[in-house]
Design a protein around this nucleic acid. Sequence first.
RNA 1: GGCCCGGUAGCUCAGCAGGUAGAGCAAAGGACUGAAAAUCCUUGUGUCGCCGGUUCGACCCCGGCUUGGGCCA
Length: 289
Amino acid sequence: MIYVICGPTASGKSTLAYKLKKYFDCPVINCDSFQIYKELNIGTAKPTSDELKEGNYYLYNLISASSSMSIFDFQKIFRTTIDNLLKTNKNIVVVGGSGLYIKSSFYDYQFVEDEQFVKLPEAFEKMSNHELYMHLQKIDEGSAVKLHENNRKRVMRALEISLSGTGKKSEFEEKQKHVCLYKDATFIGLDINRENLYKKINDRVEEMFSLGLEKEAKDLLKEFGPDTQALQAIGYKEFAKYNEEEVKDKIKQFSRNYAKRQMTFFKNQFEEIKWFSSIDEAYSFCINQ
RNA sequence: GGCCCGGUAGCUCAGCAGGUAGAGCAAAGGACUGAAAAUCCUUGUGUCGCCGGUUCGACCCCGGCUUGGGCCA
């Protein structure tokens, strides 16, 4: 059985994963977009280095903060990893707060292969949001209706894919069946009462500060610069933008906002998640299956 | 004790010849297929400090009270 643990930040996913790992003596695969970076520790609430030393943890500390990874890369490495582990393990735990990483790994999301994938010509960079959107309407109406013209990032992506010569982005998506590829996956969600969750988030940020988040973040910002992909993580980017007085509150606030976005994604993108309001309930459900 | 300025959304404030209010931030809800801890969309929030008066009608004018700040005794 594959147990896929979903939920917002600070809901207790890692704790549940660890308990299940102990119970089943099974591997744990990370599905979190920022725990893949070696240098980011305190702010990403990664399992402790002692825990990681126990072994049987996968896709943690994959790459350096100086590099970055796309969803395409992650999907590939995730599938290779889990397919290998499935040969020798009856149970596997997958944990992560990055809903899209989970979805693209478990569902038949398809991406244009690297060889065909071309970056948008520079001329597009200079266009206004509206101009870009008009362009997209012409070449991929299907994608355009799903996007808002202010969402420049996505409009550009859709253009990029359609211009890669492999067909329109919307056609690409229509071909997919939108079903889970792994038949024995059980999706477990942790849905903590909002008020308690926010309190846990605030408390955890306090704890991160006492563990030395400020030093970790500032050192990394100095080493890699504030534009680094890895340092766009909540708990890091704020040190480059806010003064001492505001930083902590901003990190708390952005974490709360993020938790809400995560819940929206999990609730509305995964029909198969079984929701539990506590770690213990989820744990006993898993071990009694 | 006297004089002056203020009390309007969770916060900072705007507003009006008298026709029961609006910005920013916060917050809530939503979208999501190569940056996803990212990116984007939508939406209110109200005894206009309290009591009375004038008025067809008061957040606005008048009186009193209350409360915060400043100045003078």
